Computed example of a mutant assay.
Amino acid sequence: MHRTIGILGAGKVGTVLARLAVAAGHDVLIAGSGDPGKIELIVQILAPGARATTAREAAAQADIVVLALPLGKHATIPADALDGKLVIDAMNYWWETDGEHEEFSAPAASTSEFIQGQLPGATVVKALNHMGYHDLEDLARPRGGRVPGAGGATPRAAIAIAGPSPQVDEVAEFVDELGFDPVLIGGLSDGVRLQPFTEAFGATIDAAELRAMVARFPETDRGREVLAAREARTDSPRRAAVHEAAD
């Protein structure tokens, strides 16, 4: 399906995704943090066929908007311009670039749920965040294509997707068009299974292996830590309400 894709972020991930989207036959608008003239040459060289524009214009014209900027710059996202839009959150919290933020670094933190809270009028789906930009470029294959492996042909690399239905289905189709097998893993809260320090983060494996890896998240050390922290955060208001009622 031909779409207009708006990419907010003109860095390594943003330009790689722009190239893949152009190759898939989409119109691509890419925006940096300010004047589009500052990234026009970058876009011409690194994402030929895409067009540099402002974040607001990209949001207004796009059928799908991809957030590919540092998470620490979330406040620059034009939230009102994204009302009614399907937004793919490809961001991750990385302290070396984002600085120390307790709201993102705590084990219970779900960064995509945070972004959904910042964009109340949009529908946020987490995808394209757990694979490095080099791998996104190198492993993309056409639909039905196969990646050459040391022992012969192996299935395409897979990208996990977390978010609400039916929007995840549209994102899955887009991921497939970019050159990866989509793996639906659940709602947006399940995006914690794709964040840094999880097994899936950095994974370049096929759909069956990725599905199994995500499924065993609760059994891993990181999974137990994250799920326990999220359960404690959920129980805290409940316990407070019980104590207040008792008083």
Results as ranks from 00 to 15, higher is better:
Arg143Phe: 10
Ala81Thr: 09
Ile159Phe: 07
Ala60Val: 08
Thr53Arg: 05
Ala81Gln: 05
Leu82Ile: 13
Gly151His: 07
Leu86Glu: 06
Phe174Ala: 11
Gly149Gln: 01
Lys85Ser: 09
Pro164Leu: 11
Ala60Ser: 15
Thr53Phe: 04
Val168Leu: 14
Ile45Asp: 06
Gln118Cys: 14
Tyr133Lys: 04
Leu119Asp: 05
Glu102Ser: 13
Ala68Arg: 06
Val168Ser: 14
Leu136Glu: 05
Val171Tyr: 15
Ser105Lys: 08
Ala50Tyr: 03
Ala162Gln: 02
Arg56Ile: 06
Ala50Phe: 03
Phe114Glu: 14
Ala153Met: 15
Asp181Ile: 11
Ala122Trp: 07
Val65His: 10
Ile161Pro: 00
Gly145Asp: 03
Gly163Cys: 04
Glu113Trp: 10
Ala58Glu: 06
Asp138Gly: 10
Phe180Asp: 01
Thr54Ser: 09
Ala157Cys: 14
Ile161Glu: 00
Glu103Cys: 12
Pro48Met: 07
Glu137Ala: 10
Leu184Phe: 04
Ser110Ile: 04
Glu137Gln: 09
Trp95Gln: 14
Asp80Gln: 15
Gly117Ser: 11
Glu173His: 11
Ile77Asn: 10
Gly84Ser: 07
Ala75Trp: 03
Ile88Arg: 09
Glu40Trp: 01
Ala50Cys: 03
Val147Glu: 00
Ala162Ser: 01
Leu86Phe: 07
Ser110Thr: 12
Leu184Gln: 04
His74Trp: 15
Glu103Arg: 15
Ala153Asn: 13
Pro142Cys: 06
Val65Asp: 10
Gln167Asn: 13
Gly144Leu: 05
Arg51His: 13
Val124His: 00
Val66Gln: 13
Val66Trp: 13
Ala157Pro: 06
Ala75Asp: 09
Pro182Gly: 05
Leu41Asn: 03
Gly163Gln: 05
Pro155His: 09
Val147Ser: 00
Asp98Trp: 13
Asp80Val: 15
Val183Thr: 02
Ser165Glu: 12
Pro164Ala: 15
Leu82Trp: 00
Asp89Cys: 08
Val171Ile: 14
Ala90Phe: 04
Leu119His: 07
Pro164Gly: 15
Ala127Tyr: 07
Val87Glu: 06
Gly145Pro: 03
Leu128Cys: 04
Gln61Phe: 06
Ala75Tyr: 05
Ala59Trp: 04
Arg141Tyr: 02
Ser105His: 06
Val168Phe: 15
Asp138Ile: 13
Gly179Asn: 03
Asp138Leu: 12
Glu102Ala: 14
Glu57Met: 11
Ala81Asp: 11
Gly152Ser: 04
Gly145Val: 06
Pro107Arg: 05
Thr76Glu: 14
Asp80Leu: 12
Ala108Asp: 15
Asp135Tyr: 12
Glu57His: 13
Lys38Tyr: 01
Ile115Asp: 08
Gly163Tyr: 04
Leu184Gly: 01
Gly179Val: 00
Phe114Asn: 14
Leu69Asn: 04
Glu177Phe: 00
